[in-house]
Write a protein that binds this DNA or RNA. Sequence first.
DNA 1: CCGATATATTTAACATGTTTATCATTTTCT
DNA 2: AGAAAATGATAAACATGTTAAATATATCGG
Lengths: 127, 127
Amino acid sequence: MGPIRNLLADVDVTEQQWRVLRVLEEGGPMEPTRIAEQSCLLLPSLTRILQKLDEKKLIQRKTDKTDRRRQIVRITPRGSRLIEENLDKNLAFLEEVRTRLGPERFDTLLDLLTALNQLDQEPPEAG
Amino acid sequence: MGPIRNLLADVDVTEQQWRVLRVLEEGGPMEPTRIAEQSCLLLPSLTRILQKLDEKKLIQRKTDKTDRRRQIVRITPRGSRLIEENLDKNLAFLEEVRTRLGPERFDTLLDLLTALNQLDQEPPEAG
DNA sequence: CCGATATATTTAACATGTTTATCATTTTCT
DNA sequence: AGAAAATGATAAACATGTTAAATATATCGG
């Protein structure tokens, strides 16, 4: 992922911050708990990341009116612009990796990783 | 990896520290640079890990006589005993994951990850 | 032999991973 | 209603990931 980190470093965001921004861009405003699920981050990490993104004015947060424990996070226009300006290069790199590894093997890898990740959610066999 | 971390936490070592110990146990005394390669760790991380392992008396270090920039790291008897006492449980967990994911799929996953890792070492196609 | 380079390791600084604890708010149960 | 349990988010503490810089030693070229 080095090349991706380099791309993102130019615009002063980390891989994880980028991932959070993309989740918000594609999924719309949502709560930290759901962001964490979708970006594969634990809440304590996400808390710090949201603080950084907030300082950089790439997201906004407001507490939910009906449940004041919750908050709603939304990406700012500035955040959207950052994504728009860098998404192509990121996807291009991903495609390059997919090509170099072999498209079928690449897709298989993603499937297997997803399956492995699922194992953690399921209970282990009772036998 | 949660379950493995729990096992290791009982004997006060982290996953990475465990990995370094296993590399030393299987590969014999060697330099930090080679440990880093074999345990997939960057040198700055390894430096700290070796310091911790040294404090715990699980490894010993001495500077190489012919090249005083280098050092030779070796596992102590105490370190070997720690591995001996925990290796079975670790391998058992690995086998459980392999079974739950499906042995063929598991092996395929390892192959693909290795191939992906190789990509980083190779130069990208010049086209 | 000496200065420029290269190599092995460490340090520094900042971000995240991970576990446990805490805080505020809400829900549940009686 | 009110105490207890649950939930969403944050804080704290420690370990590692990552990049850049620093240190020490060794090697190379003239």
